[in-house]
């Protein structure tokens, strides 16, 4: 074989060994070290970002829940207010109605009293007039002067008779 006959190529061996070692050292020191550093840094950053994103998500969810709760509360409150308002208006209208009814009742009462009083007055005046008229008529008719007191009594008795009827 060629290799055995020519012996070991020590030159090639040393050269390749030196070349490889130098290349490895240079690459390791000047390229891979900073590159690994930046890769690690990036990894850390990505991890941080993921953590932050998770944190933000949780926070956002919390906010959302809070908002939802608030909205619900506001809705309930609005409903309550509305109900209260309608109740109040109903009450008010009822009150107004009641008042009006009372007023009407009162006015009616007053009117009835007025009428009663008028009627009484009218009756009184009629009674008086009838008394004096009947006296006058009687005077004229029978030409006889009657005692006014007696006359009145007589008329009263007549009227009572009429009323009783």
């Amino acid at each position: 074989m060629e290799i055995l006959s020519e012996g070991i190529e020590w030159g090639t061996i040393f050269y390749s060994l030196a070349a490889f070692t130098v290349l490895m050292l240079i690459i390791g020191k000047f390229a891979l070290k900073p590159l690994m550093g930046i890769m690690e840094k990036r990894q850390n950053q990505v991890n941080d970002d993921l953590d932050n994103a998770e944190k933000s998500r949780v926070e956002a969810e919390k906010y959302l829940e809070q908002q939802r709760e608030e909205l619900k509360a506001a809705r309930v409150q609005a409903q309550e207010t509305l109900e209260q308002a309608s109740k109040m208006s109903e009450q008010q209208s009822r009150q107004v109605l009641e008042q009006a009814k009372q007023e009407a009742e009162r006015i009616k009462e007053a009117a009835v009293q007025d009428i009663e009083r008028e009627k009484e007055q009218a009756l009184e005046s009629v009674r008086n007039q009838v008394a004096s008229l009947s006296v006058a008529i009687a005077t004229k008719v029978i030409e006889k002067e009657l005692d006014e007191k007696e006359q009145e009594k007589l008329i009263d008795s007549y009227l009572k008779e009429v009323e009783a009827k």
């Binding site: 020519e6 012996g7 190529e9 020590w10 030159g11 090639t12 040393f14 050269y15 390749s16 070349a19």
Partner: peptide, 9 residues
């Protein structure tokens, strides 16, 4: 003999 294989080098 220290032989160098120039092609390989």
């Amino acid at each position: 003999p220290i032989t160098f294989n120039v092609t390989t080098m």
